[in-house]
């Protein structure tokens, strides 16, 4: 089962490797991990997409909480989050394919950010499902290079993470 957690951490030296080595040391999976500072001084936020059964997920949350630099772990198991991901993708685009690429870009409200006679570079954002869908359509046309940010997530509703 895929599972998204947000981790608020003190912006301390080495905090990323503490989190990463917790996952590797205990045999937990990381599907994706993003990290950047938040609006609050000294606090960074990580979004980690992981997988495992309920017991493993419980251990992951508890072990993260146990790290001294971790302020809060938000567990988005119940679909209570909005998730977005961005990709930059370079596709082969020659002859009749050029129009097909443009059509797909249009349908998914993506953007062309670089053009050459032989390729388009596309920027797309959306839920991980939408990103998977656009990639599925682009793949047969020839992907030269793909960069995914991994998901970021925020809770639904009026409340911030502090409640």
């Amino acid at each position: 089962m895929l599972h998204t957690v947000s981790v608020l951490v003190e912006n301390e030296f080495g905090v990323l490797s503490r989190v990463a080595s917790l996952f590797s040391g205990r045999g937990f999976n990381i599907d994706s991990l993003t990290v950047a500072p938040t609006n609050e001084e000294g606090l960074s936020r990580m979004t980690i997409v992981t997988r495992g059964d309920e017991q493993i997920l419980e251990q992951i949350t508890k072990q993260l909480n146990k790290l001294i630099d971790v302020l809060k772990v938000i567990d988005f198991s119940d679909g209570s989050a909005i998730e977005r991901e961005m990709i930059l993708v370079k596709v082969t685009a020659e002859d009749e394919n050029r129009a097909e690429v443009l059509r797909i870009v249009d349908i998914f409200r993506a953007k062309i950010i670089d053009v050459t006679p032989k390729s388009y570079t596309i920027e797309a954002t959306g839920s991980p499902a939408k990103i998977d869908a656009i990639l599925e359509l682009l793949r047969p046309l020839g992907l030269k290079e793909l960069v995914r940010t991994g998901a970021v997530a925020i809770g639904r509703g009026a409340k911030g993470w502090k409640g």
């Binding site: 080495g14 490797s17 503490r18 080595s21 001294i68």
Partner: peptide, 14 residues
């Protein structure tokens, strides 16, 4: 030593 002891200390500081 910070890297080496990360997984066998409760916490460490440089």
């Amino acid at each position: 030593i910070i890297g080496i002891t990360r997984s066998c200390t409760k916490h460490n500081f440089l």
